[in-house]
Design a protein around this nucleic acid. Structure first.
Lengths: 351, 351
DNA sequence: CTGAAAGCGCTTACAG
DNA sequence: CTGAAAGCGCTTACAG
């Protein structure tokens, strides 16, 4: 479990040991070179991509490295190569549950490839995000923008400096991981139509949210095709409070079913409606997007369109890594399927 | 909002501009030195701690830096100084809601001080954590262990290399941010006793969780003093499933109130109990710890002991920064108060 | 296959 | 107050 020196058999020469101690316990390739009797450049080659050094020499170097408990200094390596082996992930709000799964997927994929993941939060502010992204870009090899509020041209500007991958957003010339919004929305509208709903309302997210517009458009097209009424209520904050605040406008609209931009807003609306004495789903059906933690805890449990967030995080990292290795393969370009999860918050339209 | 060159008035000499372009758009202190007509070392001084360079020289250098849109290269700075201006945060499980607020607090405090926060996940595995922490330690200036499963001696070993701050864990000689467990537990036990409960069960977390033992001890002392029976059920996984799995043992114990190590377990137990037809709180009272998102969504809403997680994250970062600046001040050593939040999941003991 | 040298972009004693 | 030099720990052409 620990990584102490494997073999204290051959003692480390006092000179080398002292030098390392004085440095604070961290060995360098110079120490290894001394111990193994080779040039530091040979050590660098042996420990980097294999096969560039003779078998016996490499063995000697590896043994010395183990003996000294060597770990390459990431900062020192970054300077000549320009690669920090670090990836950045910008999110609008860390405490938004949607983010969790993205973070987890990205973190795992990054770690699996020997990369470190750095997370920064913009707090739903474009100015903060621009500044944080610019700063972050200096210390990472590539950047993932998960819920960006930045305008297209700023995103393009960032992408000109280093590889950028977007989640839930499409910008010309910039890599993106996108959900197949249509499939889930189609299931949702069909489900509501089957329950007799003819008048729907959409609680829209921030105007800067690309995915909110995308969802709206998909729903609008389907509603129109079926002759169902659909109104937009918003823009609203993509939070529980945002959903709560919408109750009055929802009632005034006389819609029998409400689709919120995300589960957080749907949960807020359920709470506000219930507090106001409205029976859900008997008097009003409510659905959301994302299937976050909490959606099955609320009563009634939330009907929602689930996206593959963890997979999106993984895929974003892999796209970034491909871009860095110049090995971009278009085979996984297809969007991530979304599916409807029907729970208790939707039901037949009131007569 | 963007940071383009402020003044295109004085054109940049073609020679410098070309050099920067060839480098990929990033200016260095050498470019600034050329533009301002000074030595690179003077640039370094002017842009570092102020007051070491004459007023007019500094002004000229700053103007040139702005003009070239200069941002210091963090990796290059890290090499001679040994400081990466990066802080690490290790967590057992990123998707555990308890972590969110800690992450948010830590991220904000770090950003406010110009530091970058790196998050790594150990997935509840001590071996993974040890390896990840060792690796992370190389690229950060200090490390926060938020829900560590590591034994004391490994933590001490890490702390010998670089500053380490623990959250919810006490190890001799290592900085820690601790909750005042007693205050919240006292309120909780009093609350249950007042409701007539004489027989309690504690659903304990992982054996490696220091805070779980700490909570147990606080409760045991209070229960004993009041002549209330208390049994431990566990160790269990600190998850919803862990709580679900405990239902059978809870019923066999005939306890009238259950306190779970955390809200996730409490939520799992509520779900399992409800599914089994048990009325909460009429037939069984259930309480948790942390007050995570979701605790007020579940029905009945969860009675829980709330901790100041966001503040803990901030404080951990500040402790780390103090340690790095050798300016450790003991004034904020007092533990963070915890308080009881009474909701619907606890009620009078059944007769 | 291996060594010697130069360089990545900074910082910081050391002189003056 | 400022310049010239050395060095942080690596990598990578360039020779041999």
């Amino acid at each position: 479990m620990t990584d102490e020196h494997t073999d204290p058999g051959d003692a480390i020469p006092a000179e080398i040991a002292g030098r390392i101690r004085r440095r604070g316990g961290t060995a360098t390739i110079y120490d290894i070179a001394d111990l193994a009797g080779v040039n530091p450049s040979t050590v660098s080659r042996a420990l980097g991509k294999p096969g560039r050094v003779s078998q016996p020499t490499e063995a000697r170097i590896r043994a010395a490295a183990d003996q000294l408990d060597f770990h390459v200094n990431p900062m020192a390596r970054a300077l000549p190569t320009g690669r920090s082996h670090t990836l950045g992930l910008m999110v609008a709000d860390i405490t938004n549950p949607v983010i969790f799964d993205i973070v987890r997927g990205a973190e795992q994929a990054a770690t699996a490839e020997g990369y470190i993941l750095v997370i920064a939060e913009s707090q739903e502010s474009g100015a903060t995000e621009d500044e944080a992204a610019t700063r972050l870009l200096l210390s990472v090899d590539g950047l993932i923008l998960a819920t960006t509020r930045l305008p297209d041209e700023r995103i393009a500007a960032l992408a000109r400096r280093k590889p950028v991958v977007l989640i839930n957003r499409l910008v010309a010339g910039v890599g993106g991981v996108l959900p197949d919004v249509e499939s889930g929305v189609h299931e949702l509208i069909t489900h509501l139509a089957d329950q007799g709903h003819r008048s729907l309302a959409y609680l829209s997210g921030p105007t800067t949210s690309w995915i909110s517009k995308r969802r709206w458009r998909a729903m609008a097209a389907l509603a129109e095709a079926r002759g169902i009424a659909l109104v937009e209520i918003g823009p609203l904050a993509p939070t529980i409070d945002g959903g709560r605040d919408a109750l009055h406008r929802v009632r005034v609209s006389r819609a029998t079913a409400v689709i919120a931009f995300n589960d957080l807003m749907a949960i807020g609306l359920i709470q506000a409606a219930t507090a106001a004495g409205l029976a859900i789903p008997d008097e009003l059906s409510i659905a959301g997007f994302d299937d976050i933690f909490g959606s099955e805890l609320i009563v009634p449990a939330l009907t929602t369109v689930r996206a593959q967030l963890e997979l999106a995080g993984q895929r974003a990292v892999n796209r970034l890594l491909q871009a860095l290795a110049n090995t971009h393969d278009d085979s996984d370009h297809h969007p991530l399927a979304t599916t409807l999860v029907v729970r208790g918050s939707t039901g037949p339209a009131p007569a």
